[in-house]
Computed example of a mutant assay.
Amino acid sequence: QRLLDDAVAAGGKPRIAIAAVESDEVTLYEVANHGIREVHQWTMRGGGKYVGQTNSDVRTSFLRNLGKDIDLQLGDDVPLILGGPGLARDQLMELMRAEGVSRPISSVATSIGGRPAANEVLAEGLAENIMSGHSLVKEIGLLEQVWRRMGTDGAVAYGEAELVLAMQQGAIEMLLITADLLRHEEASIGGRKWPDWLAELDAIGAEWLQCSTEHDSGAQLESFGGAVALLRFKV
């Protein structure tokens, strides 16, 4: 557990890695506070590092070799999550263990492969033993809560008029804002610069969180003007 905690606490380098595993393709992503970055992709379909016929022996060799590559790509203390819709992720984990890879590894089922699999791991809080405590997981979890409330006409606010009214009524519990909007010198709300307006949240016992747009939920936040709020009650 200490190894996981240290990996989560480490700064300036990838804190967690997610490999989206399919039977003939694996994509490795780094997860840091700023978002998700693709590191490398291996494929058996041609154009990648390992190419061959998709029989079981070749697939096993493919997974064994890329397992070694994945281990070399990552720092010693970076936990690895293997996600995907099939059984190849479990086979990859077994092969990596057989090769002596000792880093924390978790295998979780996702409904799809590729980058959407990495986003699903984050959005659904899969592999909680590794992901818990990671700031990006908290951020995405809060944004997913916003989208769920929007779908059920729940206590949420977005757009200048709604946010200003929610502030006036003390209804804001958590405000989520993109880093780009916060840094924009000309951006304002209620006739005030965003940093000045956010400073008033303390007076109503509210919090705010700066969000990355380098993941699906953050990109969706941009489409709502770059700021949304979870409310204590509807306004």
Rank of each mutant, 00 (worst) to 15 (best):
K68M: 13
E207A: 11
A227R: 01
H215R: 00
R192P: 02
A20I: 00
V156T: 11
L182Q: 04
L143Y: 11
S135M: 08
S102C: 11
I172R: 02
R183W: 05
A98G: 14
P14G: 05
V235A: 14
R59W: 03
V78E: 07
M93C: 09
E30F: 14
G75T: 08
G83C: 08
Y158R: 06
H134L: 14
F233P: 00
S61C: 09
S132N: 13
E99H: 07
N129K: 10
G125W: 03
H134Q: 09
R89E: 11
L231I: 03
V101Y: 04
G100L: 13
K68L: 15
R149D: 06
L163I: 05
A7N: 01
S102N: 10
A32I: 04
R148D: 13
V31C: 09
R15C: 02
V228G: 05
R2L: 15
L143P: 01
S132R: 12
G190H: 11
R59T: 10
L221N: 02
G35Y: 02
Q1K: 07
D71K: 03
L201F: 09
M174A: 13
Q168D: 14
N129C: 06
A219V: 00
L221I: 00
Q1I: 12
H34N: 07
S111P: 01
T213F: 09
F62I: 07
G225H: 08
A10H: 06
G159D: 02
G84Q: 10
M150W: 13
I105E: 00
R64F: 06
L80Y: 02
N119A: 13
M96V: 05
G46P: 01
I81C: 04
F233C: 06
E124Y: 07
S23A: 14
A109P: 01
G52H: 09
L163K: 02
G84W: 07
T152V: 15
G205E: 05
I172F: 10
V101T: 06
H40W: 10
E124D: 11
A179Q: 13
I105W: 03
G100S: 12
L72A: 15
